[in-house]
Design a protein around this nucleic acid. Structure first.
Length: 496
RNA sequence: GGCGCUAUCGUCUAGGGGUUAGGACGUCAGAUUCUCAAUCUGGAGACCCGGGUUCGAUUCCCGGUAGCGCUACCA
């Protein structure tokens, strides 16, 4: 096989959809597996929808996702420029060539006229297809009219009857030429249409494998016709299945988090997303392994392990992978990644020192097995930052709160500690266990409630050091020590 | 409407002419823990329908059905 060159060609229209992200990922995996080249090309021919400012966002999202590319608008390369908007002269040149060689022609039909014909055809139950009217105009006359400034689009003459290509994921795929009207190559405004620009670019950029969404299958015959007209060899095609929402409709914004940015904001780890998206359509050779790092996937990746059928996006499974990767990370790293979420929740203000970050590591560790993604950390850590004595009392019941044998004995012992460690806390509980005969749940539960204001939460073993260390830090929201909590609890209990 | 693509547990998938149809997420149960969670163990759970081909089809072929896509001077 010649040296692999693949491309990812998004249009900068705002955000990177997971479907596109997966296409990018598969191209990247394919390139890396074969030691080939990944080209990033910006498809901004649709001037009305493309905005320059979206491009930076696009590249940033892809980098966050963990992809890199070898050639692109930001790093150049031998096949540039990498923005379609900067390749106009190329499209013009090849469209002229096609006209001269009789493979394409000027079309003077107005969009309104075409739309009307289309509607009529639809109503009459006919194929809504371009009639080919302007094919009949003599080339000299057409050239004259176009030169005189008359609005003219350029269309490709479809002359083939059978289209056939061996799709690398779908296998032999065929289309009849009858169903394809002469496609627009260049719009009357002078901008190339998608089907034309891709072919010119893919060929000039020497793309060997076009890996893209299967919504492009129906476009492929048009493109193959173009390759033939231009006398070029078509690349290999591989069409990836669609990603659907839970309702089996094509995944879209209304399904919630579907863009790279939204997953970042949720606190999903890019490695988890990569792993998840890899599994959407591809499977490891053993048919079983699901947790794979980049190196493992790259080593195994192959187009013939790709499913043809569409896949429903499953946030639960992504969450599972995210939990896995979260636990894999050093605590300090998780703490760093959590910072924006603490700040947003008003629990932390910047700047903060290393001690705070270290303490955050403890907090994060305490709640790590309760969360799916990082944006849930502040809520899960709520009982560290907030202590509601009233809630504690009412949870226990006033009687119990005032007269609990356990609490009556534990409280003074804790209050007597200048700095409570968990080891000491354990001892205290042992002593009280001996004198009251209470153990297990009966022993721990009242203490937990009095200390946290809740009857469930992280292990006290983790909470107590967090309370103590937190109370000594200068935080946006001060953390109460165990002793402070008990004092406040006692006060609230007396009032009931 | 026309054309195309697709069809294995709820979901992602492995598999393939004869299998106890495998794995994972989720779910249920048990174990464990001061609670919740996590963890561990176990369970339930699938070959879209109808015809062929065949000794035998979930697997191959055809048709149907359903979902999705394309049918643009969007990409």
């Amino acid at each position: 096989m010649q040296k692999v060159r693949v491309r990812f060609a998004p249009s900068p229209t705002g955000y990177v959809h997971v479907g596109n992200a997966r296409t990018a990922l598969f191209n990247w995996l394919f390139a890396r597996h074969h030691g080939g080249t990944l080209v990033l090309r910006i498809e901004d021919t649709d001037v009305e929808r493309s905005e320059q400012r979206y491009e930076d966002q696009l590249l940033e999202d892809l980098r966050w996702f963990g992809l890199d590319w070898d050639e692109g608008p930001d790093k150049g390369g031998p096949s540039g420029p990498y923005r379609q908007s900067e390749r106009q002269d190329l499209y013009r040149r090849y469209s002229m060539e096609l006209i001269e060689r009789g493979f394409a022609y000027y079309c003077f039909c107005s969009p309104e006229q075409l739309e009307q014909e289309r509607q009529e055809a639809l109503k009459a139950g006919r194929q809504p297809q371009y009639s080919g009217r302007c094919r009949k105009i003599a080339p000299e006359e057409a050239a004259r009219r176009a030169a005189s400034g008359e609005a003219a689009a350029i269309r490709l003459k479809i002359t083939e009857w059978n289209f056939r290509w061996n799709d690398l994921v779908h296998g032999e795929t065929t289309f009849s030429g009858e169903v394809i009207g002469d496609p627009i190559l260049v719009r009357s405004g002078g901008h190339p249409a998608y089907n034309f620009a891709v072919v010119v670019d893919d060929h000039l950029m020497q793309i060997t494998h076009v890996i893209r969404g299967d919504d492009h299958i129906s476009n492929t015959p048009r493109q193959v016709a173009l390759y033939h007209a231009l006398g070029w060899e078509p690349p290999e095609f591989a069409h990836l299945s669609t990603i659907l929402g839970p309702d089996r409709a094509r995944l879209s914004k209304r399904h919630g988090a579907t863009s790279l940015e939204s997953f970042r904001l949720l606190g999903i780890l890019p490695e988890a997303l990569r792993n998840y998206l890899t599994l959407l359509g591809w499977s490891a050779a053993d048919g079983k392994t699901e947790i794979l790092n980049d190196a493992e996937v790259i080593a195994q990746f192959s187009l013939d392990h790709i499913t043809k059928s569409p896949a429903v996006f499953d946030q639960e499974k992504l969450n599972w992978l995210n939990r896995h990767y979260l636990k894999q990370l050093p605590l300090k790293r998780v703490a760093e990644l959590s910072v924006p979420f603490f700040v947003e929740a008003g629990l932390l203000s910047e700047p903060y020192g290393p001690p705070v970050l270290g303490w955050l590591g403890l907090v994060v560790e305490a709640v790590l097995n309760k969360i799916d993604y990082l944006s849930q950390v502040p809520e899960a850590a709520r009982l560290i930052f907030e202590y509601d004595a009233e809630a504690a009392v009412s949870l226990l019941g006033g009687e119990e709160a005032r007269g609990s044998e356990v609490l009556l004995q534990v409280a003074p012992k804790i209050l007597a500690e200048p700095k409570l460690t968990y080891a000491r806390f354990r001892e205290i509980l042992k002593e009280v266990q001996k004198s009251t005969g209470k153990k297990g749940k009966d022993l721990f539960h009242p203490v937990r409630v009095a200390l946290t204001g809740a009857d469930s939460g992280p292990e006290l073993e983790k909470l107590i050091p967090i309370f103590e260390a937190g109370s000594e830090l200068d935080l946006a929201r001060p953390v109460l020590s165990a002793a402070a909590r008990l004092r406040s609890f006692a006060a609230a209990a007396r009032m009931t």
